[in-house]
Simulated assay, not measured.
Amino acid sequence: MRKLLFVLLSILCFKVHAQQNHKIEEKSIGGYKVSIYLPPNYDPSRKYKTLYFNDGQTVFGSSGLNVDASADELINKKLIEPLIIVGIHSDYNRTSHYVPYNDPSMIQDFGNYQPQAKEYSEDIIKKIIPFIEKRYSTSSGRGIAGYSFGGLHSTWIALNYPEYFSFSGSLSPSYWVQDFKIFEEGKKAKDTQTYYFDIGTGEWNYYVPMLLHTKLPILKSIFYYEIFGSHHQISDWRGDRIKNILLLFSGNTDLTKYMWDIQLEIIKSESTGKFYPRINPTIRYSNGLQCSISYAATFKLLNTEDGVVNKDGSFRFTNPKDLTVKITYDGQEKSITVNYNEVEKIKAGL
């Protein structure tokens, strides 16, 4: 009996170990602290894609973004290829390192800073990447990700150094800096790259136009996700949104296998108090990747005398009557009735 119990415990311990056998190594590279995730069963004879991540001190562990747990889960389910993740720690120079533009309006909330995104980016390229690629078994596939100011930077560096980064993932990026100047740089995106960015309606900023500024095909090379009720905080970024980044960077999404649905959103801007009523069609692919369809869909208002529906799904009433909208995506049609009284009731409660 004792022998049987010992065997069972040994099996259990082996299973737990097998699920937790990634490694996190801490290094100092060119004046930057970095935390490096090596996937389960890391094999130096195998080549791995590398995802660099801003604010590296918050990337791993359950109190942060928990990227290591998400990566382990997706690897174990064989939804992504094993990868290396490099968290580059931020310090008191965070705003200066991540923000590429001079925006005097930021000083009141964030203090004095000097736009040093170019210098920081070149440190990544000239110091951190060579160290990682000399010490670890990496392939040519590189990506970079971040949130907030770090998300602004992860978009900016990919746009300006496309030869170094084939992927950019941005969680609630601060695209608003200097009156959305990053939109003007969207045209630099290359068709060899993939971009992902998202925003929560609880922190609302209108980032949808970035989809058009890049000129990239939506839901093929650029992906946007609008999450109802989500706020600007780590607890809302971990989980599905981290998995979106990992799936797009290191997974193999079958874009022909999906389900899509329609969400009605009444968003109130925290900064302006204005309301943004939107029809937000969302898509979920067979591997779990979730995105908003947005401009990839077409919206047709059937009773045009009672309102307006724009190409991005935003709408307004011109009469106090319900709107009937037909939405078409990839040859499929769905309809939604937007109830005038319900919308007004929601607005009154916000």
Score class of each variant (00 low, 15 high):
Tyr340Met: 05
Asn21Trp: 12
Leu12Thr: 14
Ile245Arg: 10
Ser172Met: 09
Leu12Ile: 15
Thr256Trp: 03
Tyr37Ile: 04
Leu248Cys: 13
Phe223Leu: 01
Gly87Leu: 08
Glu226Val: 06
Ala117Gln: 08
Lys118Ala: 13
Gly146Ile: 13
Gln57Gly: 08
Leu216Arg: 06
Leu9Asp: 07
Glu25Tyr: 01
Ser168Ala: 10
Ile157Cys: 13
Thr324Arg: 10
Lys78Tyr: 09
Ile11Gln: 10
Asn303His: 04
Val34Ser: 14
Ile80Met: 05
Tyr136Glu: 02
Ile125Leu: 12
Val34Glu: 08
Phe183Met: 11
Ser121Phe: 15
Lys78Trp: 10
Leu83Tyr: 03
Ile75Gly: 02
Gln114Glu: 15
Gly169Tyr: 03
Lys321His: 13
Ile283Ala: 00
Lys47His: 08
Leu74His: 12
Glu342Gln: 14
Gln290Asp: 06
Leu350Ile: 11
Ser269Cys: 07
Gly150Pro: 11
Thr95Asn: 02
Pro281Gln: 03
Tyr48Glu: 13
Pro39Ala: 15
Gly349Lys: 05
Ile293His: 01
Glu344Pro: 05
Cys13Ser: 14
Ser96Thr: 04
Lys181Glu: 14
Glu73Ala: 03
Glu265His: 13
Asp55Leu: 15
Gly56Phe: 02
Val309Asn: 02
Ser314Leu: 00
Glu344Ala: 01
Val325Thr: 05
Val338Gly: 03
Tyr224Asn: 05
Leu159Arg: 00
Gly143Leu: 14
Ala69Leu: 09
Ile218Cys: 03
Leu302Asn: 08
Asp43Leu: 15
Tyr32Phe: 15
Ser166Val: 09
Gly146Gln: 10
Asp191His: 14
Leu212Met: 11
Phe317Arg: 03
Lys33Cys: 03
Lys15Glu: 15
Ser292Val: 01
Met1Cys: 05
Phe60His: 15
Ala296Tyr: 01
Leu323Gln: 05
Lys347Thr: 09
Ser70Arg: 14
Trp176Ile: 08
Thr304Leu: 00
Gly169Ala: 08
Ser221Asn: 10
Val309Lys: 05
Arg46Thr: 15
Phe60Thr: 06
Thr194Met: 07
Ile222Ser: 00
Gly87Asp: 03
Gln114Arg: 12
Leu171Ser: 12
Trp156Phe: 11
Tyr52Met: 15
Ser230Arg: 04
Leu9Ile: 14
Ile84His: 03
Thr256Val: 06
Gly288Lys: 00
Asn112Thr: 06
Asp254Thr: 10
Ser10Pro: 12
Arg94Phe: 14
Thr304Cys: 00
Tyr285Asp: 11
Glu185Met: 10
Cys13Tyr: 13
Ser292Trp: 07
Ser286Lys: 11
Ile124Lys: 08
Ile222Pro: 05
His153Lys: 04
Glu305Val: 00
Leu289Ala: 07
Arg316Met: 06
Tyr37Pro: 12
Thr201Arg: 10
Lys49Asp: 15
Pro162Arg: 01
Tyr147Met: 10
Glu184Asp: 12
Leu289Trp: 08
Tyr37Met: 05
Asn54Ala: 14
Lys321Thr: 04
Asp72His: 00
Ser90Asp: 14
Gln332Leu: 05
Lys257Phe: 04
Pro115Phe: 09
Glu226Leu: 12
Pro209Ala: 01
Gly307Ser: 00
Asn310Cys: 06
Ser235Trp: 10
Lys257Asn: 09
Pro209Cys: 07
Ile222Asp: 03
Trp176Asp: 10
Tyr113Glu: 02
Leu74Gln: 11
Glu133Lys: 06
Pro162Glu: 02
Tyr285Ala: 00
Thr50Phe: 07
